Simulated assay, not measured.
Amino acid sequence: MLRSALNRIFGMLIVMTLVVTIVFVIVRVTPGDPAAVMLGPDATAADIENLRERLGLNASIPQQFISYIGGVLRGDFGQSIFLNMPVTDALWQRAEPTFFLTVFSLLIASVIALPVGVLSAYWRGSLFDQAATTLAMFAASIPSFWLGLIFMQFFAVKLGWFDTSGYGGPGASFGERMHHLVLPAVTLGLISSALITRFTRASMLDVLNDDYVRTARSKGMSEWRVVVKHALKNALIPILTVIGLTAALLISGAIVTETVFGLPGVGSLIVSAVLRRDYPLIQGALLVVAGLYVLVNFIIDMLYLIVDPRVRY
C-alpha cells in the first residue's frame, strides 16, 4: 500500500508541474503586452512599465519561469492587481463559502443518490426504478442557475424561509452563514445526485447476479446483509470514482451557483478576476483548483486500496 501511495504522489507531482507550466504559459501567450492587457487602454506607459516590473516581466523567460516556480513552492502566487493584496490571502478569505458549499452539496447528493441507486437496481424494472431513472435524467438536464432561481423565487421570495443572496454580515454567526448555504447546496446536490444515482444503479446491476451474491443468499443471510455487505461493497469502486469526480466538479462548478446566490466564494472571485483581467489572481485560482482536483483523485485512489485490497496488486 505504501508503494502504491508513493507512486500516486509521484504522479501528482508530475501533473502539478505540468499545470504550473501551463499556467505560466497562459499569461505569456496573451496577445500583446500582458501588463497592458491587465491595465486596459487608458493606462500610461509609466503604469505599464511599473506593472511589468512588479510582475517580473522585464526579465528573460527562463528567469521568469524560475522565479515563478520558486514563488509557487513558497506558496507565493503573486499580488492581486485590483485587490492590492497577496493572491493567497484573497483566495483564503473566499475559501469558507466554497468549501462548505461543496461539502454540503456532496453530502446531499450522496444521501439521495446511494439509496435510490441501490433500490433502483434491486427493484430493476419496477415502477420505482422507472421513476428514479426518469428523475435522474431530468435532474441531469436542469441548468443549475435555473433551478437556483426557481428555489430562490419560491423558498426565499414567496415563503421567506431564506435570504435571496449573501452570506451574512461581518458579525454573522456560523449558523447564520450556513443557513445562507441551504438553497445553493440543495441546488447543486440535487443536480449532482443524478450522475451518482445512475452510476450506483449500473454498478449494482453488475454485481447483484454474481455467484458470491447467490452463495450468500443460499447460506440464509438476510437480504439486507446480502445487498449492503456483499453487493454494495463490491460495487463501490466505480461509485467512489464518480463521487470523487463529482466533488472535483463541484469545486469548480460552483462558480455559476455562487454568482446566482451572491455568495462571496472562490467562484465569484474568479469571475470578477476574469472580468478585471487580474491575471495573477486567475493564475493562483487555477493552481488551487487544479491542486484540489489532484488531491481528490489521490484520496479516491487511496480509498480504492481500502475498499478492495486487490487493487494494490
Rank of each mutant, 00 (worst) to 15 (best):
77 F>I: 13
77 F>E: 09
78 G>S: 08
79 Q>T: 15
79 Q>E: 12
80 S>R: 01
81 I>H: 04
81 I>L: 11
81 I>Q: 01
82 F>M: 04
83 L>H: 05
83 L>K: 12
84 N>D: 14
86 P>R: 11
87 V>F: 08
87 V>Q: 08
90 A>H: 04
90 A>Y: 00
90 A>K: 07
90 A>F: 05
91 L>F: 02
92 W>H: 14
92 W>A: 15
93 Q>D: 09
93 Q>I: 00
94 R>Q: 08
95 A>V: 13
96 E>N: 12
97 P>T: 00
97 P>L: 01
102 T>N: 13
102 T>W: 07
103 V>G: 05
103 V>W: 04
106 L>S: 11
108 I>R: 05
108 I>A: 03
108 I>S: 07
109 A>G: 05
110 S>L: 14
111 V>P: 10
113 A>M: 14
113 A>L: 12
114 L>Y: 03
114 L>A: 02
116 V>Y: 04
119 L>T: 00
119 L>Q: 08
119 L>I: 09
120 S>Y: 02
123 W>H: 10
123 W>K: 15
124 R>H: 06
125 G>I: 14
126 S>G: 11
126 S>H: 04
127 L>F: 09
128 F>M: 07
128 F>Q: 06
129 D>Q: 01
130 Q>S: 13
130 Q>H: 13
131 A>E: 08
132 A>Y: 05
133 T>N: 06
135 L>V: 15
136 A>C: 00
136 A>Y: 07
136 A>L: 08
137 M>I: 14
137 M>K: 02
138 F>H: 04
138 F>D: 05
139 A>D: 01
139 A>G: 08
140 A>G: 04
140 A>C: 06
144 S>V: 13
144 S>N: 13
144 S>T: 11
145 F>K: 02
145 F>L: 07
147 L>Q: 04
148 G>W: 03
149 L>S: 10
149 L>R: 06
150 I>E: 04
150 I>T: 15
150 I>Y: 01
152 M>V: 03
153 Q>F: 12
153 Q>I: 12
155 F>Y: 10
157 V>Q: 11
157 V>N: 04
160 G>C: 05
161 W>E: 01
161 W>K: 01
162 F>R: 10
163 D>G: 13
163 D>N: 13
163 D>V: 13
164 T>M: 15
164 T>W: 11
165 S>A: 10
165 S>F: 12
165 S>C: 01
167 Y>A: 09
167 Y>M: 06
167 Y>I: 07
168 G>W: 10
168 G>K: 05
169 G>M: 08
169 G>I: 01
